[in-house]
C-alpha cells in the first residue's frame, strides 16, 4: 500500500465515525494538531486552578469552600487525564511541561485575567465553565479515542462547576445592593473574555477546516459562541443583571441573539502574552514546579531504595 492509500483509508475511517486509537496509523499533521490541542487543553486546566486557588482561603462559608476546593481538585484531575491522553501520541510529560513553562505551548487566555472579588468565582463558574462545557461536549465525539474518553469523564464532572458558579451569582444577586453590584461588576469584566474563549472568528480561524475534516472539531467557533450567548442572555435576565453589550438583542427572524463586536485587539494581545496576568500565571506555575523538585527526587530515591531492598532480600533467599 502506498502512502496515498493509507491516508485515504485513514480519512475513510474518520468519515465512518470509527475512532482512531494510539497505535493506529495517522498522518503526522493529525498527530501534531492533537498534541497541540490536547496539551493546550491540559495546560488550561492546570493554569486554570490559579485564579480560583486565590479565593479558597477566603470563601465566605464552608459550603462555598468545599465546593471551590472540589472544583479546583477536579481541574487538577482534568489536567492529568488530558496530559495522559497527549502522551498516547508519543510525547513525554516532561516535554509538555517544558513547553508550557517556556511559553511555546499556550493555554486558554481567559486565565490571564485577575480574580478581584468573590463574585469572580461565581462569574467564572457560570461563564468560563459554561463556555468550556459548550466547547467540550462535541469533543466527547472527537475522532481520537483517548481524547474523546477523557472528555466524557471531564464533561460528567464539570456540570457541577457551572452550577455552583451560577448559585454564587444568584445568591449575590438576591443579596444586598452592594452584593448585587459586585455580581454585576464581575459580569462586566468576564463577559467579553468568556466570548473570546471560542477563539477567532471562523473567517480567521486557521485550523477549523482541517480539524473539522479530521473529526476533531464538530462545530465552528462562531456557532459555539452564538450558543453561549443564547444560553447566557436569559440566565442574566433571571439574575437581574445586565450583560455589558448595548447591541445584545433577540432577533426573532434568526432565532438567535444579535450581539456587538468583540475587541479582537485585546484578544490577540492576551494571546501574545500581554494580558493582565500572563507573567504572574506562568511564574506561579514555574515556581510550583521548581519548589516541588525535591519531592519528586525524594520519591524517586525512596522507590529505588525499596527496589534494592526487595532485590537484596530475594538474593538472600
Amino acid at each position: 500500500m502506498n502512502i496515498i492509500d493509507i491516508e485515504s483509508g485513514f480519512q475513510e475511517k474518520i468519515d465512518k465515525d470509527i475512532r482512531i486509537e494510539p497505535r493506529d496509523w495517522m498522518p503526522d499533521n493529525y498527530r501534531q494538531t492533537l498534541i497541540r490541542q490536547i496539551s493546550q487543553h491540559a495546560h488550561s486546566e492546570i493554569v486554570g486552578m490559579l485564579p480560583e486557588g486565590n479565593w479558597i482561603t477566603r470563601a465566605p462559608s464552608l459550603r462555598r469552600k468545599v465546593a471551590l476546593l472540589a472544583k479546583v481538585q477536579d481541574e487538577a484531575g482534568h489536567g492529568l487525564y488530558l496530559y495522559s491522553a497527549t502522551e498516547t501520541l508519543g510525547i513525554e510529560r516532561d516535554e509538555l511541561i517544558e513547553q508550557l513553562h517556556s511559553g511555546k505551548a499556550k493555554y486558554s487566555s481567559i486565565f490571564n485575567y485577575p480574580t478581584l472579588t468573590w463574585a469572580d468565582m461565581g462569574a467564572i463558574g457560570w461563564l468560563v465553565d459554561g463556555a468550556a462545557i459548550l466547547n467540550q461536549i462535541p469533543l466527547c465525539r472527537c475522532s481520537y479515542g483517548p481524547y474523546a474518553r477523557a472528555m466524557v469523564r471531564i464533561c460528567k464532572e464539570e456540570s457541577f462547576h457551572q452550577r455552583q458558579g451560577f448559585e454564587i451569582m444568584d445568591t449575590l444577586c438576591k443579596g444586598t445592593p452592594a452584593q448585587k453590584a459586585m455580581a454585576q461588576d464581575a459580569l462586566n469584566r468576564w463577559w467579553w473574555p468568556s466570548l473570546m474563549m471560542f477563539g477567532p472568528k471562523d473567517a480567521e480561524s486557521t485550523h477549523t477546516a482541517q480539524s473539522q475534516k479530521w473529526g476533531i472539531k464538530r462545530f465552528t467557533n462562531d456557532d459555539l459562541r452564538q450558543k453561549m450567548i443564547d444560553m447566557c442572555a436569559p440566565q442574566a435576565d433571571h439574575l437581574g443583571i445586565t450583560i455589558p453589550d448595548p447591541d445584545l438583542k433577540w432577533n426573532e427572524e434568526r432565532g438567535h441573539y444579535d450581539f456587538g463586536e468583540i475587541n479582537w485587539d485585546e484578544f490577540w494581545a492576551v494571546v501574545k502574552g500581554h494580558g493582565p496576568c500572563n507573567k504572574e500565571r506562568l511564574d506561579a506555575r514555574i515556581k510550583a514546579w521548581e519548589d516541588g523538585a525535591w519531592v519528586r527526587e525524594a520519591a524517586t530515591a525512596y522507590a529505588a531504595k525499596k527496589e534494592n531492598q526487595i532485590m537484596t532480600k530475594t538474593q538472600a533467599v
Binding site: 487525564y81 502522551e87 510529560r93 520519591a299 524517586t300
Partner: peptide, 11 residues
C-alpha cells in the same frame, strides 16, 4: 481508566 506517572506502584 487512564494512566498516570508515579515513582512506584504504591504511589
Amino acid at each position: 481508566a487512564g494512566s498516570l506517572h508515579a515513582a512506584d506502584p504504591e504511589m
